[in-house]
Design a protein around this nucleic acid. Structure first.
Lengths: 358, 358
DNA sequence: TTGAAAGCGCTAACAC
DNA sequence: GTGTTAGCGCTTTCAA
């Protein structure tokens, strides 16, 4: 084997009780400097390592949080996850990952302590297959933070950007460029598509405020927000009698897919069709052309989510559910305004333009 | 609270011993149908849920494996991770994720059971900051599977593709197109760059076999395999007196970055410069132009890694370290041969061409 | 400040 | 097949 040194062994060696060793190891309570040194010496000599499993059982917590996302290979989630892991680690928490593929049944497992009771102390959850009402049927003893476009029912925190406003700004950017046949790719006009619908609302709002009509045939719904969805939707749009001169895509991946179709058809972006995305993933900064997008403050979202969750975990009494709005901004790149002065692709951090919102 | 139903409670209710309840819950041993039904009834009535923490402590295993990668937001790792999580879940294992940022000290933590002893039963590890020799100084009682370009020292399994051969094939593809000034972006001529050096070896080998000279000034080293690395290296190459007419990039991200620079300079891909990548990430399938690449069988890599690790975990006696070669293939796309017949971007699964290797 | 001891909830060796 | 019971290694209440 190899392991085997226990708290008791250390206690024996140091000539103290296991209680004292525990105090020293955990930095609890006041231990006299002399005792501490003696215990530390025994710990070092024996190469003692606390057994996390035993500690967890005794303490009744696992020191782990779960992060549940629909797809791990979606850059947006991957980037978010990275921030979550960093933030959690700083607080001494480990991160368990699960991917649901947007399956509603799978997602529901995380609304209760279910069979994995106590495996994690709380969950950061980005639901896809669940509707708002599904979220309300849950075991409220499990600390929960929801990411994305949902509304807190008071029993959990919700962190996300203001999608309606952001979508409105994206659409206004297109209209402001003089485009008059603006399409939208990504609507989901059904129960679980509440997130997408917020973006559609912003899209309509922008038209309303500009006194312009929405061309209903240009609002395309897609099952997901992938490159392939974007590519197919764009193909459909181009086959219309009157194709659009601009497209608001509900994710950068959709935008990338749409741009791919445009390139295949020999159309120029943005001259023939301007394209705007959503999420500000790295792909969009290096694509050709680079993608104008709505950039959520992912770092803040990740850090806030962890902070709120740990706050919930640490609190004995129920914490009221908070609605937290993270900032976002419109980042203007080539897919809407074309190549500007300067040749080299600038470093992403410098390449970002435009106004702060949120 | 809410929780609190224990095995003992169920036993009392069903009028049996906790041992029997345990047997029923875990499906162990033979339990008479009658007893089983009675116990099951008590379980249901009481809403009993096993406490994973207690189970882990008693069983001496955690039911978790750790996956350690340098960067989570690198599409290649994200795609791989997805496969690992799926495979692990099927076997009843949860997946803990950690990201090291390629930091050697951080990575070394995973070579021993360290402070997180027993938190995970084994590790799937993709090291970046560690050299081959670092891997040999480890606690061999921790089951380990290494991904990427390393060689097993006999105490762990290694799963990866044949990088030298793959790189040779990539280079040969470029040479076969008639290109004679082929550059390589991604070499890392130092201790921890062993992985990159394998690709450089393949690059040289292809030239050798074709009886052509390697243009040394066209072999560019980069600190990482990112878009920005590719963009910068390409800019450097284009500033040479005699720029290359083709580039072998050590990752698709590097290729994407390089293509971005080429577009900025008004150069055409592949007419002016042909570009080939490595990894076959989804980005490359939808980029403009799409990226020719070396495609490792990621699914097989993920599944094999999990299978080997669980095999190690389950084995009482030391398992000899295996070297496992996953297949790869060259996927020819627009960045080397230009746009072919057909306009629509075909679905990725159909878009892949070329020969099977490995 | 330190010690003794009672669990945390489950597994599994051992006996019947 | 089922019961008894001794831990797994740590935390923590209660006393001293």
């Amino acid at each position: 084997m190899g392991r085997g040194v226990t708290l008791r062994d250390v206690a024996a060696r140091a000539g103290v009780s296991s209680r004292t060793v525990s105090n020293v190891v955990n930095g609890y309570a006041r231990v006299s400097e002399e005792t501490r040194a003696r215990v530390q010496k025994a710990v070092d000599e024996l190469g003692y390592r606390p057994n996390v499993l035993a500690r967890n059982l005794a303490a009744g917590r696992s020191g782990q949080i779960a992060v549940v996302v629909p797809y791990l290979d979606t850059p947006y989630f991957a980037e978010l996850l990275q921030g979550v892991i960093r933030a959690a680690r700083v607080q001494g928490y480990n991160v368990l990952i699960d991917q649901t593929d947007g399956d509603a049944e799978h997602e529901k497992l995380f609304l209760t302590r279910g069979s994995t009771s106590l495996l994690f102390d709380g969950v950061i959850f980005s639901p896809l297959g669940l509707s708002q009402s599904d979220l309300s049927v849950r075991d409220t003893s499990l600390p929960l933070v929801i990411l994305g476009e949902r509304v807190s029912d008071g029993t959990f925190d919700h962190v996300g950007i203001d999608d309606v406003t952001a979508s409105m700004e994206a659409t206004e950017h297109l209209l402001g460029l003089g485009r008059r046949r603006v399409a939208a790719i990504g609507d989901q006009p059904y129960r679980t598509g509440e997130a997408a619908q917020l973006r559609t609302r912003g899209f309509r709002l922008a038209h309303e405020r500009a006194g312009l009509p929405v061309h209903e045939e240009l609002v395309i719904s897609t099952p997901r927000f992938n490159r392939s969805d974007g590519a197919e939707a764009m193909a459909h749009l181009l086959d219309l009698e009157q194709p659009p001169d601009a497209v608001f895509c509900y994710s950068d991946l959709v935008a990338l897919g749409a741009m791919r179709t445009l390139a295949s058809r020999g159309l120029r972006v943005p001259e023939d069709v301007a394209v705007i995305g959503y999420d500000d993933i790295e792909d969009g900064r290096y694509s050709n052309p680079s993608v104008t997008t709505i950039s959520p403050d992912k770092r803040m979202i990740a850090e806030t989510a962890v902070e709120r969750l740990l706050n919930r975990i640490g609190s004995a009494t129920p914490v009221p559910g908070l609605e937290i709005r993270a900032p976002h901004r419109l980042v203007v790149r080539e897919s809407t305004v074309g190549r500007q002065a300067g040749h080299e692709p600038r470093r992403p951090s410098e390449a970002d333009g435009a106004g702060l919102t949120g």
